[in-house]
Amino acid sequence: MTLDELKTAANELALKHWGVPYTGGFELVNRKWRRMYACFSFNNVTGKCAIRMSSAVNSQRTREEVLGSLLHELVHWRLWSQGLPVHDTAEEFIAECIRVGAPISGTKNAQHAYERYMARTEAN
Results as ranks from 00 to 15, higher is better:
residue 32 K to S: 11
residue 29 V to H: 06
residue 48 K to P: 00
residue 36 M to E: 13
residue 31 R to S: 15
residue 84 L to M: 10
residue 78 R to Q: 13
residue 91 E to D: 11
residue 99 R to T: 06
residue 30 N to H: 13
residue 19 G to V: 02
residue 89 T to K: 10
residue 86 V to P: 05
residue 104 I to N: 09
residue 105 S to D: 14
residue 33 W to F: 15
residue 101 G to A: 07
residue 80 W to C: 02
residue 85 P to A: 04
residue 41 S to K: 12
residue 62 T to Q: 06
residue 75 V to F: 01
residue 108 K to G: 03
residue 54 S to T: 08
residue 50 A to C: 05
residue 49 C to A: 09
residue 61 R to E: 01
residue 47 G to P: 12
residue 62 T to V: 08
residue 66 V to I: 15
residue 19 G to N: 04
residue 109 N to Y: 14
residue 44 N to C: 12
residue 47 G to R: 07
residue 81 S to Y: 15
residue 67 L to G: 07
residue 76 H to D: 07
residue 27 E to D: 14
residue 16 K to R: 15
residue 32 K to P: 08
residue 45 V to G: 05
residue 53 M to C: 12
residue 32 K to G: 06
residue 34 R to H: 04
residue 100 V to F: 08
residue 21 P to A: 02
residue 81 S to F: 09
residue 47 G to V: 11
residue 76 H to S: 00
residue 36 M to V: 11
residue 57 V to A: 12
residue 16 K to Y: 00
residue 61 R to N: 00
residue 26 F to Y: 12
residue 38 A to R: 04
residue 108 K to A: 07
residue 30 N to V: 03
residue 45 V to C: 03
residue 51 I to V: 08
residue 64 E to K: 13
residue 109 N to R: 10
residue 82 Q to M: 14
residue 36 M to F: 03
residue 11 N to D: 13
residue 47 G to Y: 01
residue 21 P to R: 03
residue 23 T to H: 11
residue 54 S to I: 09
residue 49 C to K: 08
residue 39 C to E: 10
